[in-house]
Amino acid sequence: MLEGKFDQASLLKKIIDSIRDSVKLCNFNCSQNDGITVQAIDDSRVLLIALKMDPGCFQEFRCDRDMVLGLDLESLGKILKQGNNEDYLTLIAEDNPDSLLIVFEDKKKDRISEFSLKLMDIDSDVLTIDDMDNDCSITMPSADFSKIARDFKTMSESLQIIVTKESVKFKAEGQIGSGSVIFKPHTDLDNPDESIKIDMNQPVNLTFGAKYLNDIVKASTLSSTITIKLTDKAPALFEFKLPSGYLRYYLAPKFED
């Protein structure tokens, strides 16, 4: 049996809102030690989502035996809208389930809402992603990165990320002209999440689809910082930390033909 209780429904709501425009169907893998993990690739095979909700994400978590919950995220999203952000949210599944029970409890009123979501058999390819050495790692406020991704999408289909030891530069070239934003590393002692940290082994210059970056920055609601790991001619990793665990996006770059 699975029983996972979130202190606030808003955490799962934000996570599902961050991924459901990229993937519609995915398997939630549940286990006692790892909590709930998800790996899913978007239909265009450009973006991969790796989610890890450790048991620490939950106020209470038990999973007596490993199980896989095949979920339609659009349907799950409809049910999650029924609860309030502050509610307790509990996911309950029996062994070999054909449905997932979702329970909202209002903390102040004696109100309990229960929903049952039908599960699906989902065939999905799982990719092995080894921890590799990256050429660069940037940690910056997620709001800043989100603004760049949203603003530059109106100018160009692509966004270039150029990292040197001294700076990270975001650059877009489109029909109407071009633009760039440069950030230099700095440490904000009063507000550490406002700091910008650049670790560089080798400079990189990579280009990504603006559409996918716009999907990725939907997760900015989950964490005030984002870590971007870049390696020449390889997929980039965009990571948002959860209270315990992470939401990662792996995005294939664009190359010149």
């Binding site: 690739i41 450009v46 799982v126 990719l127 092995t128 997929p235 294939a252 664009k254 010149e256 033909d257």
Partner: peptide
């Protein structure tokens, strides 16, 4: 114009 790569080509199926 740069060409979009397929992510799956970078990794192996588990």
């Amino acid at each position: 114009t740069p060409i979009q790569n397929d992510l799956v080509e970078f990794y192996t199926m588990a």
